[in-house]
Design a protein around this nucleic acid. Structure first.
Lengths: 208, 208
DNA sequence: CTTGAATTTGTTGCATGCAAGAATCGTAAC
DNA sequence: GTTACGATTCTTGCATGCAACAAATTCAAG
């Protein structure tokens, strides 16, 4: 709900209200809110209220730095490997993404972008390092940021091209190039994300 | 408590018992256990009980793979930088660690090892990426594993030497060498950790 | 009109009771 | 001796009431 943007940052999420809405008692609501607090999505202030949290610019930056390290490593590993059957999945993903962009289907496209990055990391390690990656990315409220960012004009087309460039680099078995391209790709979306965060804070007047 | 090893894997942590021990009601105990569950330290089975969890061999391996990627990156970044004031901290850490080993003070030494790795990552990024690193390492029940591993005979002396080699590589401003040495160091402790886990599972007879 | 304090309202934190279900133990049948 | 089954005893899951405290509101004094 928070991720889909139905609830806006700063909103109060009172336990009693949510309990009524979902027709359960406060206890399970409480546990869920505590979980969200730990994931950084909400902030619960004792005896004041639970509020939807807006990630700070710094947090967004760190999040993407982490992503950059992870995915750059993954791309490099893929390029180093002999057989890379995952490339078929990635190529298929790019094809579908291209089509989604053509249709102007931003939601589907956003979903495909997530899949692309997730598939890439998943393919990079035989042992399931990717579980930690997914866990981390989910925890860090990253999806919402990226989804918002992707809807920025201009990012859409570039993003598909960059994905293709990454796959090409892996195909040509050049680990250093693959890592570099991947990191640049993440870094570029990072810039867009920070810009989006800036614009949002201007709108609301909050500087955090 | 779990980290310090007072509570053994497999132990039942009943909410009522803990509530009595700490003289509070079940509710805060419950929240704490839920938190530990999210961190992977315990496993709460509905209407059965809450148990201290023993990390699987695979989990330990993944944990160290993550550590290797993180810290290798950090070492490389440090070697690439011009001024590295953190090296003084690291040298001081090594000196104290050497002395602790001489005294046979395993606990102090274990603490210093944590500090070394944490300082290294903290120094690598101007922006606080290290917070995520610390968070992650804490979350993944990593400290307990490492602490147990460090007490293995043979690891102690080697570890100090490896730390010195890492600092030397950073001093000589060779990013590739620094990353390589760092990754080898983590990989080697990883092997020890997996061996320790194996031995432990033989002792208890559980294979997970 | 401004300012200050007292009051009221709203929120989470915690205690506790009850319900649901899993595991264990005992008992009886074979 | 073995097995099946029922009672019992644990456990966590959830509902709800009260306490503690923060913030907003009201109202009076200047």
């Amino acid at each position: 709900m928070i991720v889909t943007g139905v609830v806006q940052p700063g909103n109060l999420l009172a336990e009693t209200a949510l309990a009524q809405e979902f027709e359960v008692s406060r206890t399970p609501i409480r546990e869920a809110l505590k979980q969200l607090e730990r994931e950084g999505l909400v902030e619960v202030r004792a005896r004041v209220g639970t509020f939807v949290r807006k990630p700070t610019q710094r947090e967004i930056h760190e999040m993407f730095q982490l992503k950059e390290a992870f995915e750059g490593l993954a791309a490099g590993l893929l390029a180093r490997r002999g057989r890379v059957p995952e490339l078929l999945l990635l190529q298929e993903n790019i094809a579908q993404a291209t089509e989604a962009v053509g249709r102007g289907d931003a939601e589907r496209y956003s979903q495909l972008v997530h899949e692309f990055h997730s598939t890439l990391v998943a393919g990079a390690d035989n042992l399931k390092l990717s579980e930690h990656y997914d866990l981390l990315m989910n925890q860090l409220a990253y999806h919402r940021i990226v989804t918002q960012t992707l809807s920025l004009p201009g990012r859409l087309r570039n993003s598909v091209n960059e994905h293709q460039a990454i796959v090409d680099a892996i195909l040509s078995k050049d680990p250093l190039a693959a890592e570099l391209v991947m990191r640049r790709h993440v870094a570029s979306s990072s810039q867009s994300a920070v810009l989006a965060a800036l614009r949002e804070s201007e709108d609301t007047g909050h500087s955090d």
